[in-house]
Design a protein around this nucleic acid. Structure first.
Length: 560
RNA sequence: GCCCCUGUAGCUCAAUGGAUAGAGCACUAGCCUCCGGAGCUAGUGGUACAGGUUCGACUCCUGUCAGGGGCACCA
């Protein structure tokens, strides 16, 4: 059975109207059918009359009235009759639609029917998308900045998968280069130090306590390790740190599909191939003894060196090769989450993708802003040099996975974020994650009690499914239903903005609507039929909370 | 010096170019014979500044001011 979609049916009617009225008129892509900001403006609103009043040489209010009359007539004759209660013109030319109660009842049963799949949409049509994030150098434990990237990237992956994309997660491993050498040397020196030798530790060495831990670990296995070559310390260090990173990420609910090694890219000769490819396309030239990529052809400020005059590659060269490989692996959309220190790098990388013949839209680079950690209302000072970083591990130990993930997703990804550790571990309504989880726990508690309290015989789940939803008439019940039906739109919004933040805001709104409903209306009461209808509503809230939280990688505890 | 991001209520943040700029915290005043008060209801209070585009601007453009970040044949 084809399910009628109210919104698209309305859009079609609007198009029909203009086709009849002005066949030559080119309609804008966006017909301006939205959820209004204020409830009293109805459930849907259109500002199309403003958009087209100029072309049609008609004032918006008149045009709106004409359109509204047309829509009203068509709605009354068609399948929308049971869903649209009224069409009104308001203000200078807004057209406001009010849904019937039936529309909400129908939506609620749909939520219950779909359950765990409610909210799924096939927007992606199996498009393969690769989300690269974290990609921290394996020179130390993951910091708070990586943690935010991990939360955003992983959730984005879950959202896109839910929306029909074939999304994969990738970690690009910078497993060679200067920083890795510094790491190896730092470990080596600490080993010597532990053996009682006097050492001079370099300014730019890794000062963190974890270097001692690795050194101790090495000495346990090899008491005379100081005699080993530097490669030994390099390999041991990278391996040990990567194990830690993987473990921390796993406890954070993040597991990558691919780990791609920079060393591997270089060894495979793919850098050379990538540069040859660019050269063939005419974007490579030599000057001042170096080899340059003509990134200015694609909007970069200046051309970039790819091979230095000493014959070695700059960092950009393997990166170009790496992204060329991503496309060659079949991905049609690349999403990169980068720290703010990389923003100057965006244009040159995008330029390389364009130079290799890829659509501009096929690569999205998202800057994940830093988070400032607060404890007891005061910012926690961090210093990389002295190894005084707040790590993902510390956050996990202090506030746990659920609160951490939720907090990292509360703000827009490209905005600064204040992370209040004290608040995050509080089990009070001021803590948004507990506020949301509390709604879930409350529903479970009610559902559990329903059987005994109502004294109904038979399968209560079945009775709830068959409840007469038309008994839900109050403002709070309808408002809650309305919010539930906005879940699919919220996910679509996250896709459009490439930002999971909208979901965390939505879940907080949903929890608020639920708590308001709960406060004013008793679910388990004298009236059995009404109780069942309200239980049905609770069930639907449970479904959406479950789906929403699971997409955020956060658990939904039935008891707290 | 050049480039990027951000300036919204006392604080932390919302608001696909749309109608009266919304929440939470804090402060003030209320609500428990009641399914989890870990909750709910009110009140106070705001778009950094100056122009511009638009029927309509927190949103777009220009400039000023303030905060943060970035500039390399570093990674």
């Amino acid at each position: 059975m084809m399910k009628p979609n109210t919104e698209s049916d309305l859009l079609k009617l609007i198009r029909d109207f203009f086709k009849e009225k002005a066949p030559a008129l080119k309609l804008p892509q966006e017909l301006g059918l939205d959820a209004p900001r204020l409830r009293k403006f109805g459930d849907l609103t259109s500002h199309i009359a403003f958009k087209l009043s100029k072309e049609l040489k008609q004032n918006p209010n008149e045009l709106a009235k004409e359109l509204a009359a047309y829509l009203k007539a068509r709605i009354d004759k068609g399948p929308l009759k049971t869903r649209i209660e009224s069409v009104n013109v308001a203000g200078a030319g807004f057209i406001n639609f009010l849904f019937t109660k039936h529309y909400f009842y129908e939506g609620l049963s749909e939520v219950l029917r779909q359950g765990a799949t409610y909210g799924r949409q096939n927007i992606g049509r199996d498009k393969p998308v690769l989300i690269e994030f974290v990609s921290a150098n394996p020179t130390g434990p993951l910091s708070i900045a990586h943690a935010r990237q991990a939360a955003v990237g992983d959730t984005l992956n879950r959202i896109l998968s839910f929306l029909g994309f074939k999304a994969k997660k990738e970690y690009y491993l910078n497993d060679e280069g200067h920083q890795i050498d510094v790491l190896a040397n730092s470990i080596y020196l600490r080993v010597k130090e532990l053996k009682g030798e006097k050492i001079e530790f370099p300014e730019d060495g890794y000062q963190g306590e974890y270097i001692y831990d690795i050194a101790k670990e090495i000495l346990k296995e090899k008491p005379d390790a100081e005699k080993e070559k530097i490669e030994f310390f390099l390999n041991y260090g990278v391996k040990s740190i990567l194990e830690g990173i993987t473990r921390d990420l796993k406890d954070f609910g993040v597991e990558f599909d691919f780990w791609t090694s920079q060393k591997g890219i270089r060894k495979s000769g793919k850098i050379k191939k990538a540069l040859e490819d660019l050269k063939r396309r005419g974007f490579i030239y030599e000057s001042e003894g170096a080899v340059w990529f003509k990134s200015t052809s694609f909007g970069d400020d200046k051309d970039r060196v790819v091979i230095k005059s000493d014959g070695t590659y700059t960092y950009l060269a393997p990166d170009i090769a790496y992204h060329r490989e991503k496309y060659r692996r079949g991905f049609k959309w690349l999403i990169n989450l980068w720290g703010p220190d990389h923003h100057g790098y965006i244009n040159r990388l995008r330029a390389s993708a364009s130079a290799l013949g890829h659509e501009k839209e096929s690569i999205s680079i998202i800057i994940v802003q830093l988070a400032t950690i607060f404890r007891d209302g005061k910012p926690v000072v961090m210093s990389t040099r002295r190894g005084q970083l707040i790590t993902l591990r510390e956050i996990l130990d202090e506030v746990g996975k659920d609160a951490a993930r939720f907090f990292f997703l509360m703000r827009k990804t490209d905005s600064h974020l204040d992370f209040d550790l004290t608040l995050a571990k509080q089990q009070t309504p001021q803590n948004p994650v507990f506020y949301v989880q509390y709604a879930y726990a409350r529903i479970n508690s009610i559902l559990k009690k329903s059987e005994t309290e109502l004294g109904l015989s038979g399968d209560i789940a079945k009775l709830i499914r068959r409840a007469d939803l038309s008994l839900l008439k109050s403002e709070e019940e309808l408002a809650l239903s309305r919010t539930l039906l906005q879940f699919p739109l919220t996910l679509k919004f996250c896709y459009e903005t490439i930002d999971p933040q909208g979901l965390s805001v939505y879940l907080q709104d949903l929890a608020t609507d639920f708590h308001k409903f709960y406060d004013l209306h008793r679910v388990l009461g004298e009236d059995k039929a009404l109780s069942l209808a309200r239980l049905s509503l609770c069930m639907a809230v449970k479904v959406v909370l479950t789906n929403g939280l699971s997409i955020m990688g956060i658990s939904a505890p039935s008891q707290m």
